[in-house]
Design a binder for these strands. Structure first.
Length: 747
DNA sequence: GACCTGCTGCGGGGTG
């Protein structure tokens, strides 16, 4: 479609809005999206941050809505009187964050004002009176979180049909944040339940900046018919100024004196970021506190205003808001030290540069992070700080190979080539199926198994759950005293389930650990998960300041703090971040190459040279199995999931296998023994259930406690293993052992 | 050493 005709398909009132913005042309993605969205297709718009994705969806959507109220042609399928409105929500827009909803509400109210369509926001901070009014008189565009969507089903099941009876479009914002997660499975299930309730399915539009796999995204958006989804990919024209700085950590014995490198990095951040507006991403809340403290002390020592503000998920809304306000305020410079809390597109004004301390978690995360700077056509600026230990006699292989540095270069190379790694196939998620079963029973005031299974396990997140497995799951729910069957066959919630359903925490598909509140002078600074290690008198760094613990009140889960002069960063619980296949596969390429990226500083160049020397010394260009003493080290360059699965497959045959960074370590084994066992495994490939049975704890997600051992293994076989990847690794190792076994030597 | 996200409804009474 040509430039002119795409714009001309917009309704005159929508065109007027475009003129009034002073836009001289539509952006690439906006132009491309108009036709398919107007034609009622399912559409995915993949375009970089700040390229007007929201408008790409809503210019055509508003056109479709305006045509009903103010037809420009004499012929319309809708109400001929023009002013009549359906008593239904017209457009449902699901967004992962309350802050994103608030941002979009402001923008969309303005646009939708031109066509007299109301825009409503609905999340936990919106007054219940407003929600009640909307439920009675539904209309226009509704911006909602998945959790509020869920609450509507649980508490107002019968009204779903009317609320969404004449739904025209569904928009999913930040689509990538839902793919492969429990929350995403919940959202898919709820959308399918709307379709079942209304007997029709509105076209769906997904918006994202960082989609790695368009087929996966299309399957998420329209599971029943992914082939029909139109994918619009805007050119990513972001220019990136890049620097990677290397730091060496001195070790004295087994004591890690990384404080030295921390100080050096903080010093560099202080000198280069003071006076501007910047974001510094770190990989843990603990690091946020450590660096905030170092930078505050540095500012105090120089008697200057502290421009550095902490931001992470355990800080109170007030503390976080103060940091966001500071960096948004154009009249004073501010830098925010944050975790992934500021990774998504919440409006925080213009950011000059982005720093990343430590290896980025993934290609998608890195792309999202540096996209926070360089908006409106300016080049983005990214500075990455990487530490590696000094090499001494006892330094291990992973450190000698400078794996943090190499992994970081690999991640940067992939993003620079426009390659974003898709999330691993999530399999199905029984935990969310338990939640959806309880939700549907609550919404309908009881349901039969014959009704539940086709509704919940149709095309979508639970399509692999056959009637046999689902019956087993229902038995588990009954055994856990959550449901019972009435004489007429209807499944009903027990009093125990009623209690869980009434608690607001039911609406989220994910689990949150129990947390204790940290207060000072009646001000809540934030929360800490299970503070068993905190006792009165202890010193603590929190919210960027230093405290002494005054009292700990276990019954109220309250920790009272008073200012102090020293402090230690707190320990948070956390999941292990997973490194993906693409990043790992890229690493040998970097070791084998002689190219030295110009964006490495002198210290990082030395680290890379050291890594390549080790690589060559160990003959790693030609082999991936090393013998050290009686142990074997294997370097397969695959994802953590595949490493985990391979370790299980070898353990199943009695090999003492552990994972260290990107390597597998096998104790007390010779290459001949390994060769023999790999032959055995390849001749009798393990089945996923056998391997999953070796995992000691199957309880990962929120409702896993309901499942019996059988379903727990079933769930882990689907979500935690990569069997094809493991078979490939074992075949490669087998080939290498066949060819090179005679020259396997010690290192 | 190791992220993040979310969250009732309803009716009755009083006030401007």
């Amino acid at each position: 479609m040509s430039r002119v005709s795409a714009f001309q398909r917009l309704h005159p009132r929508v065109q007027q809005w475009v003129y009034d913005q002073g836009w001289t042309a539509l952006r690439d993605a906006q132009e491309q999206a108009i036709g398919p969205i107007l034609d009622g297709c399912d559409v995915i718009v993949s375009a970089a941050t700040a390229t007007g994705k929201t408008e790409a969806a809503f210019l055509p959507i508003c056109t479709a809505l305006a045509e009903r109220a103010y037809p420009t042609s004499g012929f319309t399928l809708e109400s001929p009187t023009g002013t009549d409105r359906s008593s239904s929500i017209d457009v449902l827009c699901i967004s992962p964050l309350k802050a994103l909803i608030d941002d979009q509400w402001t923008r969309l109210e303005q646009l939708c004002g031109y066509i007299d369509v109301p825009v409503h926001r609905w999340h936990g901070d919106v007054a219940s009176s407003i929600k009640q009014r909307l439920r009675r008189n539904p209309s226009g565009v509704l911006l909602m979180t998945p959790e509020s969507f869920e609450a509507t089903f649980v508490n107002h099941g019968p009204s779903i049909r009317q609320l969404f009876g004449d739904l025209q479009r569904v928009v999913i914002d930040e689509l990538h944040s839902f793919i492969g997660t429990a929350r995403g499975a919940q959202l898919q299930s709820l959308l399918h339940r709307v379709d079942v309730a209304t007997g029709r399915s509105a076209p769906r539009i997904g918006l994202s900046a960082t989609l790695g796999d368009h087929d996966l995204a299309a399957r998420f958006l329209r599971p029943a018919n992914p082939g029909t989804v139109r994918v619009i990919v805007a050119r990513d024209e972001t220019q990136l100024n890049l620097e990677l700085r290397g730091y060496t950590i001195a070790r004295t014995g087994r004591t890690d004196t990384s404080g030295g490198a921390h100080h050096d990095i903080a010093q560099h951040v202080y000198h280069h970021l003071r006076g501007g507006d910047h974001l510094v991403f770190v990989n843990s809340r603990r690091d946020v506190e450590t660096y905030s403290d170092l930078l505050t002390r540095r500012s105090d020592a120089d008697h200057v205003v502290n421009e550095f503000h902490p931001h992470h998920g355990s800080l109170s809304r007030e503390v976080r808001h103060a940091a966001e306000t500071a960096v948004k305020d154009p009249s004073r410079p501010a830098t925010v030290i944050c975790t992934s809390t500021l990774e998504l597109g919440v409006d925080i004004g213009t950011i000059q540069t982005v720093a990343q301390i430590g290896p980025p978690a993934s290609t998608a995360s890195l792309r999202q992070r540096f996209g926070r700077s360089g908006r409106r056509g300016d080049a983005a600026t990214l500075r990455v700080y990487i530490t590696e230990p000094a090499i001494e006699a006892g330094t291990g292989l992973v450190d000698r190979l400078r794996c943090h540095l190499t992994q970081t270069i690999a991640t940067i190379n992939l993003v620079a080539a426009g390659l974003i790694e898709p999330p691993a196939d999530p399999g199905f998620n029984y935990s969310t199926l338990v939640q959806q079963t309880l939700s549907m029973i609550a919404a309908r005031g009881g349901a039969t198994p014959a009704r539940l299974h086709p509704t919940l396990c149709g095309p979508g997140p639970f399509q692999d759950v056959d009637p046999t497995r689902y019956t087993r799951l229902l038995r588990c729910l009954a055994k856990a005293d959550l449901i019972y069957q009435a004489a007429d066959g209807l499944l009903l919630p027990t009093p125990k389930a009623e209690k869980l359903l009434r608690h607001p925490s039911f609406y989220a598909a994910f689990q949150t650990p129990e947390e204790w509140r940290l207060v000072t002078h009646d001000t809540t600074l934030g929360t800490l998960p299970v503070v068993r290690s905190l006792i009165p008198g202890d010193l603590l760094l929190f919210a960027g300041r230093r405290w002494r613990i005054r009292t700990v009140d276990p019954t109220r889960r309250l920790v009272e703090l008073e200012p102090a002069s020293g402090g230690n960063p707190p320990t948070f619980d956390g999941d292990i971040p997973e490194v993906g296949d693409h990043v790992r596969q890229q690493m040998p390429t970097i070791y084998n190459s002689n190219d030295v990226p110009e964006w490495l500083d002198a210290a990082a160049k030395i680290l890379l040279t050291e890594a390549r020397e080790t690589w060559q010394q160990l003959d790693l260009p030609h082999r991936s199995i090393l013998t050290t003493g009686g142990h074997l080290v294997i370097l397969p360059w695959v994802s953590d999931t595949t490493l985990f699965t391979t370790a299980l497959a070898l353990r199943q045959h009695g090999l003492d296998t552990s994972i260290d960074g990107p390597t597998l370590n096998i104790d007390d084994t010779t290459p001949e023994q390994l060769h023999h066992i790999i032959q055995t495994v390849l001749a009798n490939p393990p089945d996923a259930h056998e391997l999953a049975a070796l995992i000691p704890n199957h309880r990962v997600d929120k409702w896993d406690w309901v499942l019996d051992e059988h379903l727990g293994i079933d769930a882990d076989a689907a979500r935690r293993l990569n069997l094809p990847g493991t078979t490939h690794v074992l075949q490669q190792l087998h080939a290498e052992l066949e060819a090179t076994q005679p020259r396997l030597t010690g290192t």
